[in-house]
Nucleic acid binder design. Structure first.
Lengths: 191, 191
DNA sequence: TGTAAACTGCAAACACCGTTCGCAGTTTTG
DNA sequence: CAAAACTGCGAACGGTGTTTGCAGTTTACA
């Protein structure tokens, strides 16, 4: 698992082939199947292994919104450290013990909230998704360029680029976005 | 492109192999390379082809928040029709003319908003992400089960399941989540 | 109309992938 | 000390994306 994670960190998920992992372990590809049933198995184990980096969880004291934001920030950091994780967490099979523990900790933080269980589940899913979104934007953010593209069919786009680049947002965007989302999901009275 | 989209709709992205597409076209795999430079090219074209289903865009009259929500709903519907699209939109190369047109239309809708260009860009990215999140939850929502998992290490989870299943949320969750998110991103005074 | 150039289709091959099989070599068990 | 279990792994199978080379067809031009 450590070898696979190292390869993925360095060259992406596609580079995690059984032969590559075996080579890094100085063994043969077929030998891995004594310990893994398939490559998907390995990917699941990788996902759960980096999910362990989410620990330690914050104490459930104080404002639960603040605690949830700390959880989300930890999730974002893990996804920035391991950009391939987003690609994995789409598959339902990647939910291992560590992922469940994280989920459980989130529920514990929200225990004081009066929201529905369903609402809490959806709030966690959204928090997860937003953390991934921000991580991806941070890692591959400036990868796109408009060089060589005729922009005349997109008037609003060129108008937007004519404006001077504004100052970075005052408060952290991640906090603002998640606060707004979680409040909308968990406190229907504030709709 | 139509053949590739049909295969992906039926059997997923992994089933879109050059040989499979060629077979559906009753031709050889190598023939495709007269029109495509690579499989990635085909995937990019597929993404942009289904992005055309986002048209027609709503008129930019009336409340821009409502218009944006209509855009987001269209995006969600496309992602529900083509579940493989989420897997594609992670790659930066998938931004084609139709995707740019959609982006431009969003900017046009937000022209009346006083927010920063940066804020608008991020709002569109978030809207995109949330639409994908909801689409994925709708398509593969109930795929996961706790059967055969020892839940004793997860006390809050079992406590949550002990509660009776609550009634579905009153207002549409998609609207609520997106409204809260967009308001937080575009109207800093309401933080 | 005739010929040259350009375009198109595609079988075969290459390198790589995940996975299985079978057999040695080693370790543990009784 | 023999039998059983475990471990490593070369070789092979069927799949993948892609390249090559060569026929067959269509177009362009004199």
């Amino acid at each position: 698992m450590a070898a696979a994670v190292a390869i993925a960190d360095a060259d992406g998920l596609a580079a995690v082939s059984m032969r590559a992992v075996a080579a890094r372990l100085e063994t043969g590809a077929a030998s891995l199947y004594r310990y893994l049933s398939s490559r998907d198995d390995l990917l699941d184990l990788m996902a759960d292994r980096v999910a362990a980096e989410l620990r330690p969880y914050p104490e459930p004291h104080g404002d639960w919104m603040d605690a949830l934001l700390r959880m989300a920030r930890a999730q974002r950091e893990v996804h920035e450290r391991h950009p391939w994780l987003a690609e994995l967490s789409q598959r339902p099979s990647a939910i291992g013990p560590e992922a469940l523990a994280f989920f459980d900790a989130c529920l514990g933080i929200m225990a004081a909230s009066p929201a529905t269980i369903t609402a809490k589940f959806e709030a966690i899913a959204m928090m997860n998704g937003v953390a991934i979104l921000f991580a991806r934007q941070a890692s591959a953010g400036a990868g796109f360029t408009f060089a060589g593209i005729d922009l005349t069919p997109y008037p609003h786009l060129v108008a937007a680029f004519r404006q001077p680049p504004a100052a970075p947002p005052a408060t952290d965007l991640f906090d603002r976005a998640l606060r707004g989302l979680l409040r909308a999901l968990l406190a229907p009275d504030a709709s």
